[in-house]
């Protein structure tokens, strides 16, 4: 199945169906849902999630989990904001490199602990979730970076696109590039295949000579890298960087997207297309809640329910296929 080019695997069909259903119901209740403005807000909501979800997906493919993505995103975004405020000379691209490099470094700390320190992924990243969030407060001294502190150019990434002020802003292009890169990496490189092999059966992967530790280390670095990029995109998208707000609770949304996108919670199976679809579904749900005037308070409940339904549905599909 892996060798065949299929845009949508069997597992992704229900997600797609659910997405169509949600769009249809929302549009019926509130016809405003089918306007360009709403389409654009969904489009702007997703890029942050896609870049984080790509890393989270690779981690979960190896049977791991990274709950520190929100804090890494926060620390990288805050560092970018402070750098641009205090040293405007580094420019937006310099700041972008800084954010991504910082994210990768934070991810490397996770990777070292997990792959070489034998600390279980949940414990290591739960620890760094707290540790990195604390660092966000420490480096920012609890003061937020405001929109006027940041160069205009950064904000334009969320408005302008490669085709001028069209429907596809630059942040979306970054997300598409990240997804395409992940797709090629997972499908066509040796390390990409190793990631699936480790998740499928770590013992067998080790016996076959796959450098399990090195690959495990790498997926956490990539997860940090994606979170770092997300921090930069956050600064572009929202302008204001608040130490308590940036990336807070984002791990939950990222894991939801990955699980809803059909990545097995037992590792070893899942596709980029599925995860992107998962991101689209969550972005649509979030926007639909707003369009339908349902209070923000329902967001957490919705994500929780979505994860539960996705894993239970996955389990149900699994048992059915095993019987067949």
């Amino acid at each position: 199945m892996n060798n065949r080019w299929r845009l949508v695997e069997v597992r992704e069909l229900p997600t797609l169906a659910l997405w169509v259903l949600i769009c249809a119901v929302t549009a019926l209740v509130q016809p405003k849902f089918l306007t360009a403005g709403v389409f654009r807000s969904i489009l702007l909501w997703i890029p942050l999630l896609v870049v984080v979800a790509m890393g989270e997906m690779m981690v979960m493919l190896t049977r791991g989990v990274d709950v520190s993505v929100g804090s890494m995103m926060g620390l990288a975004g805050m560092a970018v904001g402070i750098a641009l405020r205090d040293h405007p000379g580094i420019g937006v691209y310099g700041a972008m490199v800084l954010g991504i490099a910082l994210g990768a470094t934070l991810g490397a700390v996770n990777g070292l602990l997990i792959a070489y320190g034998n600390v279980p992924a949940i414990v290591a990243t739960l620890g760094t979730l707290g540790a990195y969030r604390g660092l966000v407060h420490i480096v920012s001294r609890g003061v937020q970076v405001d929109e006027y502190n940041l160069p205009r150019e950064l904000g334009r990434w969320s408005i302008d696109g490669p085709f001028g002020q069209t429907l596809v802003p630059w942040v979306v292009v970054f997300a598409i590039l990240a997804a395409a890169g992940t797709l090629l990496f997972l499908r066509f490189t040796r390390v990409g295949r190793d990631i699936y092999a480790i998740g499928g059966n770590p013992e067998a992967a080790w016996l076959r000579g796959i450098p399990v530790r090195r690959v495990t280390f790498l997926v956490y670095v990539l997860s940090g890298l994606g979170s770092g990029l997300a921090g930069v995109l956050y600064a572009s998208r929202f302008g204001t960087i608040n130490p308590a707000a940036i990336g807070s609770g984002f791990e939950l949304i990222a894991i939801s997207a990955v699980v809803v996108g059909g990545v097995s919670v037992f590792g070893g199976s899942g596709t980029v297309a599925g995860v992107v679809l998962g991101c689209l579904l969550l972005g649509t749900i979030s926007t639909a809640l707003t369009v339908l005037n349902i209070a923000d308070a329902w967001q957490g409940t919705t994500y929780g329910l979505v994860i539960l339904v996705a894993v239970i549905f996955d389990h149900w599909m699994g048992t059915r296929f095993r019987k067949a």
Binding site: A297, W298, Q299, T302, Y303, G304, L305
Partner: peptide, 8 residues
Amino acid sequence: ATMALYRG
């Protein structure tokens, strides 16, 4: 999931 659900 229930962490998000119950808090929500």
